[in-house]
């Protein structure tokens, strides 16, 4: 398992799906470990009743069917399937509505889904998902990207309330790729994934949704920032180490060409 995770840490993010399926066939006995530890690009299905798209993940899956957050129905239809309690479903419906507005404000498009389920220790777990196609043929408003994908997975474990305080444990993964392509500069592509965790004890006075939403917003901001500043920045630093942007380099050619 350690070696498998070592490979996943190095293999190109765009090839993670192929790598995962290769590992699954090499290590069939570790399939559940692999599937839970390796995040894959999110898939989407259409809810026929509401006509809206929703995101698939392990948390809305039962057998080979996936529950839509909009109609609460499984597709393909499934009998005796698992559903959240009606109380939790109420929160789930509200979370989906509000999160869709949040998503629209930050992503100007994209798809979101929220799933909730009871866990064993009197609390519950919520999973917030966002998928955005930012390419110019998708929902990229500015039309800069030949290809652009952003998948966000936020899983929050909410502990039982104690004296109006609940413990929230958020694990977030962002997977993204962006490619620009033009005649004069060729293809330029950045892709990658990062995962971080955040723990907080918060008063439930404002409600769970408010607490979870704030945590996700803060985390997404941090992750976006560190991808932009740290991760992309490090690759740029590397390019500049390989070929330093020194004035000497720029001065010589003009002197020679003149």
């Amino acid at each position: 398992m350690e070696a498998a995770m070592g490979l996943m840490r190095r293999i190109h993010p765009k090839q993670s799906e192929t790598a995962l399926s290769a590992l699954l066939s090499l290590l069939p006995h570790h399939s559940s470990d692999l599937l839970s530890q390796v995040d894959q690009p999110l898939q989407v299905l259409c809810d026929l009743e509401s006509g809206k798209e929703y995101i698939l993940c392990e948390y809305n899956r039962d057998a080979d069917s996936y529950r839509s957050p909009w109609s609460n129905k499984y597709y393909p239809l499934l009998e005796d399937a698992l559903y959240p309690s009606s109380e939790l479903r109420k929160l789930e419906v509200e979370a989906n509505e509000v999160f869709a507005i949040y998503r629209d404000q930050y992503y100007e498009g994209g798809i979101s889904s929220v799933y909730m389920w009871e866990d064993d220790n009197e609390g519950f777990v919520a999973c917030f998902l966002i998928k955005k196609d930012g390419s110019k043929t998708g929902q990229g408003r500015r039309g800069h990207l030949q290809e652009g994908a952003w998948d966000a997975i936020h899983v929050i474990e909410v502990g039982p309330e104690e004296e109006s305080i609940a413990h929230y444990c958020l694990t977030s993964t962002i997977m993204l790729s962006l490619t620009t392509n033009d005649e004069s500069s060729g293809t330029f592509s950045l892709s990658g994934s990062i995962r971080r965790q955040m723990n907080m004890d918060l008063s439930v006075a404002d409600g769970h949704l408010c607490n979870m939403g704030r945590m996700i917003e803060e985390m997404e901001g941090k992750l976006r920032n560190s991808l932009d500043q740290v991760y992309f920045g490090k690759t740029k630093e590397m390019v500049c180490t390989l070929r330093p942007p020194s004035e000497v380099v720029l001065r010589l050619p003009s002197a020679d060409l003149a």
Binding site: S185, S189, S191, K234
Partner: peptide, 10 residues
């Protein structure tokens, strides 16, 4: 703590 790659070609 992550995996980010740049590929550029011209």
């Amino acid at each position: 703590e992550g995996n980010v790659q740049l590929d550029a070609e011209h």
